[in-house]
Design a protein around this nucleic acid. Sequence first.
DNA 1: ACAGCCCCATGCACATCCTGGTTGTTGAAG
DNA 2: CTTCAACAACCAGGATGTGCATGGGGCTGT
Lengths: 224, 224
Amino acid sequence: MHILVVEDEKKVASFIKRGLEEEGFTVDLAHDGEEGVNMAMDKPYDLILMDVMLPKMDGLSAIKTLRQNNIQTPVLCLTAKDAVDDIVSGLDSGSDDYLTKPFAFAELVSRTKALIRRNSHDRGAELVFADIRLDPVSHKVWRADQEIDLTTKEYSLLEYFMRNPNQALSRTMIAEQVWDYTFDTFTNIIDVYVNYLRKKIDRNFDKKLIHTVRGVGYILREPE
Amino acid sequence: MHILVVEDEKKVASFIKRGLEEEGFTVDLAHDGEEGVNMAMDKPYDLILMDVMLPKMDGLSAIKTLRQNNIQTPVLCLTAKDAVDDIVSGLDSGSDDYLTKPFAFAELVSRTKALIRRNSHDRGAELVFADIRLDPVSHKVWRADQEIDLTTKEYSLLEYFMRNPNQALSRTMIAEQVWDYTFDTFTNIIDVYVNYLRKKIDRNFDKKLIHTVRGVGYILREPE
DNA sequence: ACAGCCCCATGCACATCCTGGTTGTTGAAG
DNA sequence: CTTCAACAACCAGGATGTGCATGGGGCTGT
């Protein structure tokens, strides 16, 4: 679950980032409106958290720009307490919900989850492929009803596979989704983690589910 | 958690209803003061959300009527921004908190939760998890019928765990609930206090109840 | 002044992540 | 069929991150 946080105050930004990551989200940061728009257009996010007061381009204009470019990612707006009028124009310009500063973090989390739940029908539901089960909420994974312990990175990688089964996934695509926004292409980190995953997911089972597509990448599918 | 919303404007009423339901509350609607009083006397609610300007019987009189009939359900009053005088008489007539229109919805939710929390705290019901008992009134704690001496902070921390058992609690959430920290991420105070708690709660017992969830926070649960 | 509590800073232990190198595999050209 | 180059799998060790334990300083109430 990827969230883009657009917030210029570094303290607030990193506070939100850390808190959301503890809740199991993957968080990217943008520090002004322009950067926010660029990042949101580059990569599909599940939610954008947008401060209204921003350098270069304010939050509301940023949302408008996104909507004009047909980016329909839901947006949760952060606004100063007294700027009630902003809220109205915020909803006008395409924001889906708002939160006034200062806010309780618990509040932010529940709004965030509500928006994501509302906007993505099947998200949050358990993912199943063959005899693998994956719970995106608790980040737990089972194969054949036996729980499997994964690290954060291993989990994200598997989640990406589970959301795109039976499709060959290129290293570039995997890097974008599972690793950071900018990425160094000359590393074998993905191979390494696929290897880790195979050890935990496939090694003790007859039916191998993670396959290599030579020259392309990897694929999650039933063996022939 | 059942909430009664007394509000004549249909748009506002259904907006509030929908929002609160998304937060997990069950919401009934009444459209004027009389209906509100009848419903509140019929069925015990955890909270009443009362508009002041209402047909048939205004909100303040409704509250008075309820209190005269010994209904002590907490009331959150909604009032127009300029009617500050109303607020005072509102508090007089037995309202527990108020909110001026127009309000941010997040504000409404957090006040709602605060009121319900405050009220259920006061019931002072003893909290029990496994063989830990905690009395919110006297702030005393027992494990296996043996009293355990905790400092104020240790106690608040444990109480938070006891009110949210079997859930991973992130450091951010703990900091917000137990300390009043908002943006201070550069301290290990929570780790330190969890350590204190473990010494007193878990150290002398076989069954450890406070567990670490790496990268997330802590959880109170039975060992596997 | 002292004791108790709260909080901070530090150092250690260990899990996780990543890099670089080595070995193994594949498929096409000779 | 053999050879070779490209690609993938695997391994080992170092860097980084995260949590735990502990000592001590500041503050407050006695």
